[in-house]
Design a protein around this nucleic acid. Structure first.
Length: 257
DNA sequence: ATGGTTGATTTTCAA
């Protein structure tokens, strides 16, 4: 089962690319972020033509998440973080076969010391409580999404700039991510790749993609119970090369069976 | 320090 995460940065703009990518890459499950669509505008019929069922949680202009599954049901759908008052559509979960999928669009946080940064840390704290509960109910758990945190220095093109005092790499953000991993989750990518310089996001500015000035902030985490089943993981750079691309490339993990 | 680019709605905001 190939499970992927892609921040599409507007599904309205990116739908043709998503359709092409679903045909080419043929993931079994996909978490999308930044759909930027109200639910009544979600293109579920167009995706159904390719064999994908969809569940989604969106809003106008910003944010928005969805989970797609090919030829499989999406059960026990949870929209938003339980018990956390949030006007932003950033989280959705569903069960596919016997695997629980949690899809997150983690708050960006703008800059350290801002209100948005404080919201990011509060939001991640709420996610921690939610995932602890999900793990109790569903030992086979995959948590994927745009985490807006680069786990360590191998995941940034310039560690001198992307340091302890910088957004997406700050001490508090990395500590919050580590706290999630300490629940019993593993970065699928790092189960199969040790090296530096493989990224999932490149700024639109300064020809960052051409120069590979990126970060790896899109993650696919697998629980202890799934660790030995995660036979492959990576990032599909292809959609980032297309005309009018999203600034993110899809990250994926493949589970045996 | 600033700015560079893209997307959705504007006369900026968010990333």
């Amino acid at each position: 089962m190939k499970i992927a995460s892609w921040n599409v940065n507007s599904l309205n703009v990116r739908l043709p690319q998503l359709q092409d990518w679903l045909r080419d890459f043929a993931p079994d499950v996909v978490g999308l972020q930044e759909t930027k669509l109200e639910d009544h505008r979600f293109p579920d019929a167009a995706l159904a033509e390719l064999g994908y069922r969809s569940v989604f949680h969106g809003q106008k202009t910003y944010n928005g998440v969805a989970i797609l599954a090919r030829e499989r049901a999406l059960d026990d759908v949870q929209v938003a973080i339980p018990g956390f008052d949030d006007v932003q559509a950033r989280a959705i979960a569903a069960t596919v076969n016997d695997v629980r999928i949690v899809n997150l669009y983690v708050v960006n946080g703008q800059d350290i010391g801002t209100e948005k940064y404080a919201y990011k840390l509060r939001w991640l704290d709420a996610v921690h409580g939610w995932l602890a509960d999900e793990l109790r109910k569903h030992p086979k758990l995959v948590v994927l999404g745009d985490f807006n945190i680069a786990p360590d220095d191998r995941d940034v093109h310039d560690p001198a700039t992307w340091n302890d005092d910088h957004i997406l790499t700050s001490t508090a953000e990395r500590a919050a991510l580590k706290r999630l991993l300490d629940l019993g989750l593993h970065d699928g990518f790092r189960l199969h790749h040790d090296g530096a310089g493989i990224f999932s996001w490149w700024d639109y500015r300064q020809a960052a993609f051409r120069r590979n000035l990126g970060l790896r902030i899109d993650l696919t985490l697998v629980s202890d119970a799934l660790k030995d089943d995660a036979v492959d993981a990576g990032i599909d750079r292809t959609p980032r090369t297309w005309e009018r691309a999203s600034d993110h490339a899809p990250a994926f993990v493949t589970l045996r069976g």
